[in-house]
């Protein structure tokens, strides 16, 4: 598959590249990869990384080595919504284990897996900077905090509703 940014996406890329000095457009790589991942299917297939490399005039290998270093870049297909649940110390002592077990049970998947309908992926992550509002998870751009079983139920229902519409 070949990828091409539409006009808005291209304008955003140009805005990002303009943040850095002339000739230092490689600096825009992380922001550009975010843009690419968000613009297509939520992950970075090789062809998409190659496209980003061509846009920034760098070698594809420079993109691969960066994409594989940072935990937010997905190198495999993911569900439409990714539940990234924090499991580090402060969240653990505030009950994240129970929440993780509950989500696994409700979605019938294990960490790292995607539901059969392709809607949800469960990922266990390390501290997201919300330790005082634990247990918590990130879904897309936002944090869902102070999680309880009831809250998890309503969050799942909320995202389900957006796809069945």
């Amino acid at each position: 598959m070949t990828y091409t940014f539409n006009e808005t996406q291209m304008a955003e890329l140009n805005r990002l590249v303009a943040h850095y000095p002339e000739g230092k457009q490689k600096s825009a790589l992380l922001p550009a990869l975010h843009l690419a991942q968000d613009s297509f299917d939520g992950w970075l297939p090789t062809e998409l990384m190659d496209y980003v490399a061509s846009l920034l005039h760098i070698e594809p290998i420079e993109v691969y080595e960066v994409a594989s270093f940072y935990s937010m870049f997905n190198l495999k297909p993911v569900g439409k919504f990714i539940f990234e649940v924090c499991q580090t110390g402060p969240c653990m002592i505030s009950g994240s284990d129970d929440i993780i077990a509950y989500i696994q049970q409700q979605l019938a998947i294990k960490p790292g897996e995607t539901t059969k309908d392709g809607v949800f992926t469960l990922k266990l992550v390390e501290c997201l900077g919300a330790c005082g509002y634990a247990p918590m998870m990130q879904v897309g751009k936002i944090f869902r905090e102070h999680l309880t079983k009831e809250k998890v139920d309503s969050i799942i229902a909320e995202y389900r509703a957006t796809v069945t519409k």
Binding site: H19, H34, I58, Y70, C127
Partner: peptide, 27 residues
Amino acid sequence: IYVHRGAGAYICGEETALIESLEGKRG
């Protein structure tokens, strides 16, 4: 002032890793 978004790596808080990351490299 420009905002540069990282992509998930604690090590990029270390100042020289942060600089590498700002240059579009691994941290």
